[in-house]
């Protein structure tokens, strides 16, 4: 196996559960099954897009992947090494290589510090660079993300949303990471600015050989940036495959409904797109339904779906579906 084929990140039956309430609260202590039995392989240089409705666990999974959350169950491997239960100090050298970009750049940037300082911070903490080298590196990073050199002296509030997200990205790539987890990086931006950031991320990936895990609720943006897609529902992956294929021929009834619900600009409404409207809401992860977790909302559910939970099965190379009756073409 060459270095390129080796997965950079791998999860095996990963689960994250949260306890809520106390034994004195009305319902007692309860467990939220936020992420449940996720096995995902991320290869070097690819972009894996995570999609699903809010509350499906995509952000929780992302945070588990960079060990911002402790993992309840299962395994997390980085370049083949088990990092599931590494201590914080053991993780520290790895942090440099695993970075994250958040949705709201104004919430993740300290308003009282100059952006040059903010970008230099990871270099000071992790690097062994002299202050002159740090200044040079910050200038280089600003150039990479499309900010002007004299911007280093500004404060976050002096920037537009798009520019602030560029600062967030500069911070994330400062230490030459291998893997960047992007949690809704363009959702808070104006529509006319989103495309700039999407392009910037693509450029950086090419230049710096980055691997991305990309989360967004805007499905057309996810399709644009991702090589592979994992569709999540109630904490588990229900479908996985090459981005364009999953969007063109979704096999899981949930993916079908999700993709059909995206409003698209049609110059002449042809009515060619059939919309599947899901009834009901996403069930609570406090008490997930029996059998297939999607069955209460599934238009094609039968008795078997109520009792037997379908596994995520590989139906052909690279194409996995967790459904008893997948639509495979």
């Amino acid at each position: 196996m060459t270095d390129l084929d080796r997965p950079i990140l791998e999860t095996r039956s990963l689960a994250k559960r949260f306890s809520i309430g106390t034994r004195f609260s009305a319902e007692g202590r309860r467990t939220v099954h936020a992420v449940d039995n996720v096995s995902l392989t991320v290869r070097r240089g690819e972009t894996v897009g995570l999609v699903g409705e809010s509350g499906c666990g995509k952000s929780t999974l992302a945070r588990c992947l960079v060990r911002l959350y402790d993992i309840t169950d299962g395994k997390l491997l980085f370049e083949g090494n088990d990092i599931t239960s590494k201590s914080l100090s053991e993780l520290r050298p790895l942090r440099r290589r695993l970075q994250m970009v958040f949705q709201d750049p104004s919430a993740s940037l300290n308003p009282r510090r100059r952006v040059g300082d903010l970008v230099a911070e990871p270099l000071r903490i992790h690097g062994k660079l002299s202050s002159r080298e740090i200044t040079a590196r910050v200038a280089k990073l600003f150039e990479l993300v499309g900010l002007l050199p004299d911007h280093v002296m500004r404060y976050p509030h002096e920037f537009s949303g798009g520019q602030r997200q560029r600062v967030g990205i500069a911070r994330a790539i400062a230490l030459n990471p291998d893997l960047v987890v992007l949690d809704e990086p363009v959702s808070a931006l104006d529509v006319s600015v989103q495309a700039q950031i999407v392009n910037l991320l693509a450029d950086l990936q090419e230049k710096l050989k980055l691997t991305y895990i990309f989360i967004a609720h805007d499905l057309s943006v996810v399709r644009q940036v991702s090589t592979r897609i994992a569709v999540m529902y109630l904490g588990s992956i229900v479908e996985e495959g090459p981005a364009e294929e999953v969007f063109a021929t979704p096999a899981h009834p949930y993916s079908q409904a999700l993709i059909s619900a995206v409003p698209v600009v049609e110059t002449t409404p042809t009515g060619a797109r059939k919309r599947i409207i899901l009834t009901g809401d996403v069930p609570s992860p406090l008490k997930p339904p029996s059998g297939c977790r999607f069955h209460p909302r599934c238009p094609i559910a039968v008795d078997r779906c109520r009792s037997e939970r379908p596994e995520l099965k590989e139906h052909r190379p690279g194409r996995k579906v967790a459904c008893h009756f997948p639509t495979l073409t």
């Binding site: 809010s54 499905l219 409904a257 619900a261 409003p263 919309r275 409207i277 899901l278 809401d281």
Partner: peptide, 10 residues
Amino acid sequence: DVTVQAGILD
């Protein structure tokens, strides 16, 4: 979410 949005637009 888009799934809910579709219902509201309808």
